[in-house]
Each structure stands twice: as C-alpha cells, then as structure tokens.
Design a protein around this nucleic acid. Structure first.
Lengths: 332, 332
DNA sequence: GTGAAAGCGCTAACAC
DNA sequence: GTGTTAGCGCTTTCAC
C-alpha cells in the first residue's frame, strides 16, 4: 500500500540543509573530489537527517548508463537455472549491482523482446542463456551492450565471452562409464540446442568403436511435457536400449518417470545417467548417477566477466564430474 | 563484448530526421495527444529508420517513477520460490514491466540492504517474501513504495496486501490424515518464521484431543544444512515418533535423507507428509504424500496486486491440497 | 575547497 | 496539430 504525500528528499534538499552547494554534496557523498572535514560533516549530517538516498535515475541519466545487469534464462523453475541465477545474484549483489531478470522459455521471439526491453532500460550488461541462433542479438550489440553467454555457446558469435560446462569431457566420461559396464545401445535424451553434447556423444561412441544409432538420439523441447513425451517415446519405440544418458535434470526426471510408468526397472532393465546433479538425485530410487555441472559457479563467473568489462576473456569452460550412485548396472 | 562508438539515437535525432519537434515525436510514439496522419507516418518512419528506442531513464526521471517491480525472495534455488518467481515474471512480462530480483537468504540485514537499493533505483512496487519482523520495511513505506507480501504475513503489518497459502487448512488436513491413520506422536519439522503453521499444528492436535508434545516441534533455518540437522536430530532424539509433517520442500528433503541415513523406513517406521508439491516428490521412494501449494499462482496474484495499485485488496488466501502418494501408512 | 550552471532524454504545460 | 521550453535529480566542468 502506498503512503502518499511523502516526497523523497533530493540532493538539493541536502544542499540547503547543509548550507552548501549541490556540487559539494555530490562530491562528498560519492567520495569524489575534495572537501574540508567541516563541510563533510555538515553534509553527512544533513544527508542522514533527511534520510537521503541519491536517485539512481538522475545519476544514470547523467552518466548515460545504468549500472545494473540483465539476466535472461529459459526457465527459472529449472533447478539448473535456479542455481545459475543464484550465482549471478551472489556476485552482482556483492558488487552492489541490481539485476533485472527475464525468462525466455527458450522462445527466440520472447528473447528478442526481452533484449529490447533491456535496451530501453539502458541496461548495458547482460548475461544470457541464449535460446536462438544469435540473430536477435544484433540490436543488443548495436546498442553497445556487453553480453556474456552462459551454458550455451552461440554459433557465429564465438567472439562473445561465454561460460560453459565441459560438455565434451562430461559426455565422454558418461559414455565411457556406460560402455565399461557393457552397454552398446545407449540412448541420448537431449534438448533442442544441445548440439554440442550430441556431437560429443557421437564422438565418444565413435572413439569406442560403438556404431552410432541415430534413432537413439532424441530431442525434446525444454518443457516437462515435451521431455516426458520424448522419454516415453524412446522407451516404447526402442525397448532394446540398455542405457540412457539424459542431457539435463528435466530430461532425467522424465526418464525416471517414463521408465517407472513403463515398468522398466532401473538399473536392472535400463541404466540411467543424468546431466546435472540436483538434490533429489540422491533421494529417488535408485539414487541417480549423474554428471554434475557447476551451475552456481557458472553464474558467478558470468557475472564476474560481465562486470569486469575490461579485458576480453573468451570462453570459460568449467569442469564436470561423474558422481556414481545407483542407477547404472551391467548390461542385462 | 562492447562495440563502442555507437551512440544510441535520441528523441531529438528522430525529431530532426522527421523534421518535426520533439514533443510531436513523444506524442506519436507514446500514443498521447493528437497528430495528423502525415506527421505520424513521418515520425514512425524516422523512428524505425534510426532504430529508435525511447530511453526509460529519461522517461522515468521525468515522470518521477520507475515502472519496474522489485522482487525479494529468500532463495531462488528453492523450487517453491522458483515457481513463485515464475508467476511474478509471467504477470510482469505480459504487462511489460521489468523485474528486479534480489535474494535475502532470510537475512533481515540483507533484506534491508536490498530494500535500500530498490529505493535508490526508484522502483516503486515490490513483492517480497519478508524474512524479518517488518521493522526494516519502515523506510520502504516512508519512500512511498507499494509493497505486497507473499507467502508470509508480517506481524503488525496486517494492512499490507499479502498473498498466502491457506496454512491452517493445509496443516489441519495433514494432521487429520495422519491421525486418521492412527498416529499420535506426530512431529512438525518447521522453519523459523512459520509461526502461523506451528500455531495451526497445535490447534489441529488440540482439536483431535492429541496432547501437544513441544519436543516434537522443531525449527530449522532456511538452509539445507540446517534442515538436515534438525531432521536428523529429531529422529535421533525422538525415535518414538511415528509421523513427520515437514513444513516445506527443503525440510521434506532433509527428512527423507535423514530417515534413509538412520534407517527409518518410510512409511513402515515413519510416515511423512511434506508441504509443497515438487516434481521429485513423485520420483522418490516411496513417492511423497504432500500438501501442495500454488506457488506459481501466488507469485502471479502478488504481481497483479502490486500492479493494480488501485483498490486496496487485503490478504489473498490460496487453497492447498492434500495429494496422497505413498509415504504415509498406519501407525506401526 | 566550493558554487554556479550546463545538460543527460524525456514529457507535459503552454503558446501559437 | 505542432513547436518551444521548463525541469525531473544528478554529475561534472569551469570559475572563483
């Protein structure tokens, strides 16, 4: 509810109360320039007395920039992006930077719209998990934004700083582990846009001399429903598979659910590895073997990158880790 | 990366290009006032040609308000707040309002700091899951913010619009269900600040003629570690309990984990009900019986409230629902 | 060390 | 129907 009638005190009010000029107030409060101890005191006292808070609006307009950083993620209810966001917020808050958040739902159009609104707000730094092919980022670059991509590299935008997990090693580790248990018909349950991981999957199979069965590589959109449909379809269409690698926690969730519903026992009938370690992986039955990704760190690093706009660090690749629990067994 | 040298075009540029005054441009673009079709065309064409986007900075400064809304949640990695945030974003984005997000970690000091920074940014609408006792909201009200509380009511701020789940009914339903299965030694694993639910818990017990055992009411801080410690302590200290009601998904998680580690079988040794339905509740073993809360809706409604600042709707109470799965059984 | 004044981009009041 | 102008709160020359 709004308590009206209250006007926020401005720098002018403080100046009058302290009997100095506005410039002096500005200097004292922003720590720039010099001021005599006596004036300093007067200003500080007046500011405190009037409960003065400088208006970011005025400052930003004058300085022609908004300090804040924009954050674009596909889905904030996905624990992976939740942790990534947490990392960004941790870094940003400790730097005193406000964060504007938007969810793209992996829809390029929505993403373009959000970019537009960030430009309008004069946000000049943005961290994004890009959903499209990078076309819609043109306006952002033309507007002079500094952007950092997270989780997913964008084809044709290799010069943009990007923070990713080490997909290749992660996928390879998973595939090798599965193959070591005797599995040959390994499926990859992936999301559209995970081209990197699909490629790594094929490579890993190749390296082990296992023929690539394209039918075992399925792609879902980034919604629970789509993930479930893909998982369910996979199990029904190819009941001969003996192992599944899920490309993310929502895909893993779908795989567990679909397996349960279709009476595939894990790991007896089918082994399962999921990308992204989440708290419930330890809670479900059997506990899930996962390739963990440092989501929180990814966000933190991205925020660091976008804040230290200075040197143009390129791609940062963060390590993944195989955490063996109970969802993988020898080939039946 | 930053492409420098580009200056964003301003209303003045558009005015010059269209050979009209700035006021006309403003009127045409904002749809206010009138303009002849011919001028309209000229202005629109010029704006499009120059890729003009009005600066929110200038507009806000002039209008003395920032359109955006601030959102303060304890922990964005908690699925409950994730869904709540999603609701807020859905509503805000469809209204074209930017959202500034901050995480309080349930720390009143951090919360106060974030409130301060929202004021500085001239955000004048905020949705918050309050962590403190409402003291720190004084400055916000004095600054004229319109605030809506979500999930938790604040003592002494009953006049502030608030969106909550129907805790009393939810808790009562859970307790009655448990009691109906024969349980008498029911524990409540709660979070600090859930006074409402604790009260409802006592009331529900009273109503059923079950004596309240204060030792069975434990409180954790809102971190995984604290939740686990509380759950583990509870099981070890009072192995005679036969049922546990967890006040949130992280507490439920902790209970499942602690039970597992201490070899309490669910539901044979101990029955478990958790507040908040999350995807993994269906995946774990046994599937968890829950009291679902409409987190997404809660966020959406809060955003609606804070945007339609008009009529002062008071507290909105959203229904909860008992979803029976497999984690409760008859008293052993 | 300090103050006066310009001006960031925009809207609204007012003149024509 | 349209242009001119003041001014939102702030920082930053530039004099003094």
């Amino acid at each position: 509810m709004r308590v009206s009638g209250q006007r926020r005190s401005t720098i002018k009010d403080v100046a009058e109360a302290a009997e100095v000029g506005v410039a002096t107030v500005s200097r004292v409060l922003s720590g720039t320039g010099s001021a005599s101890p006596a004036t300093r005191e007067k200003v500080l006292a007046a500011a405190a007395r009037l409960d003065y808070r400088p208006s970011a609006l005025g400052r930003n307009l004058r300085r022609q920039r908004t300090g804040g950083i924009g954050l674009l993620v596909p889905d904030i209810t996905d624990p992976f992006y939740g942790r990534l966001t947490d990392g960004v917020l941790t870094c940003a808050q400790s730097a005193g930077e406000p964060v504007m958040i938007g969810t793209t739902r992996d829809d390029p159009e929505r993403e373009a719209q959000l970019i537009g609104s960030l430009i309008e707000e004069s946000v000049e730094r943005v961290i994004a998990v890009p959903s499209g092919d990078g076309e819609m980022w043109g306006p952002a670059f033309r507007a002079g934004l500094s952007v950092v991509f997270a989780e997913r590299p964008v084809q044709g935008r290799e010069n943009i700083p990007t923070v990713v997990a080490d997909d290749r090693t992660g996928v390879r580790t998973a595939v090798e582990y599965l193959a070591g248990l005797g599995h040959r018909r390994i499926a990859f349950l992936s999301r559209h846009g995970q081209a990197q991981r699909v490629r790594a999957f094929r490579e890993a199979l190749d390296a082990l001399g296992v023929p690539v069965d394209e039918e075992l590589i399925v792609r879902a959109h980034s919604s629970r429903d789509s993930a479930y449909a893909a998982a369910s379809g996979l199990f029904q269409h190819r009941p001969d598979l003996t192992a599944v690698l899920a490309g993310g926690n929502m895909l893993g969730e779908a795989a567990v659910l679909a397996a349960k519903e279709l009476d595939f026992r894990v790991p007896r009938d089918v082994s399962l590895i999921m990308f992204d370690d989440v708290p419930w992986a330890e809670l479900c039955y059997p506990p899930l073997t996962v390739i963990s990704q440092p989501a929180q760190d990814m966000g933190y690093r991205a925020a660091e990158l976008v804040l230290r706009e200075g040197r143009r660090s390129r791609t940062v690749t963060l390590p993944t880790e195989l955490i063996v629990r109970g969802s993988c067994g020898p080939r039946r």
